Computed example of a mutant assay.
Amino acid sequence: MSQILQQLTGVRARMEQAAAAAGRDPAHIRLLAVSKTKPVEAIRDAYQAGQRRFGESYAQEACAKIDALRSQGDFADIEWHFIGPLQSNKSRLVAERFDWVQSVDRDKLVERLARQRPAQLAPLNICLQINISGESSKSGASESEIFRLAQLVAQSDRLRLRGLMAIPQHTQDPDVLGQQMQSMQALFTRLAQQYPTVDTLSMGMTEDLEAAILHGSTMVRVGTAIFGARDYS
Rank of each mutant, 00 (worst) to 15 (best):
N89C: 03
E135K: 11
L159F: 03
R106A: 05
N131A: 10
A64K: 09
P118T: 08
I66H: 02
L121E: 15
E135T: 13
Q129A: 09
I146G: 02
W80E: 07
R70M: 09
E61Y: 07
L149Q: 10
W80C: 05
F82A: 07
D99W: 05
Q180H: 11
R92H: 10
V104R: 03
V110Q: 05
S144I: 00
Q129T: 10
V153G: 13
N89P: 07
D175M: 12
Q151H: 09
D107N: 13
C63S: 02
I130V: 15
C63K: 01
H81W: 01
V94Y: 01
E96K: 06
S71N: 12
Q185D: 08
R106G: 08
V94T: 01
A68R: 01
I146F: 01
G140N: 02
Q60N: 11
R158Y: 07
W100A: 05
V110L: 03
V101D: 14
A95S: 15
F75W: 14
K90P: 10
R70V: 00
V176T: 15
D157V: 01
Q169V: 14
K90T: 10
F82L: 05
A141E: 07
G73E: 12
S137K: 11
F147R: 04
H81I: 01
L121I: 06
A68Y: 00
M184E: 11
R160N: 10
A154P: 10
H170I: 14
R117Y: 03
N89S: 08
I83T: 14
H170G: 11
G140M: 00
E145A: 15
Q60A: 13
L177M: 13
T171L: 07
I78N: 08
I126D: 10
G163F: 05
D107I: 11
D74R: 13
R106T: 02
R70P: 03
I66M: 09
S71W: 02
E79R: 10
F75V: 11
I83S: 13
R158S: 15
Q102C: 08
V101F: 13
P174I: 05
S139V: 00
L109E: 08
L128I: 15
M184T: 08
Q72F: 07
L124E: 10
Q87R: 04
Q151M: 02
Q60W: 04
T171N: 07
D107E: 15
Q180G: 11
S137Y: 06
Q151W: 00
L152V: 04
C127M: 10
D74E: 14
S156T: 01
S133V: 03
P168L: 04
L109F: 05
G163N: 08
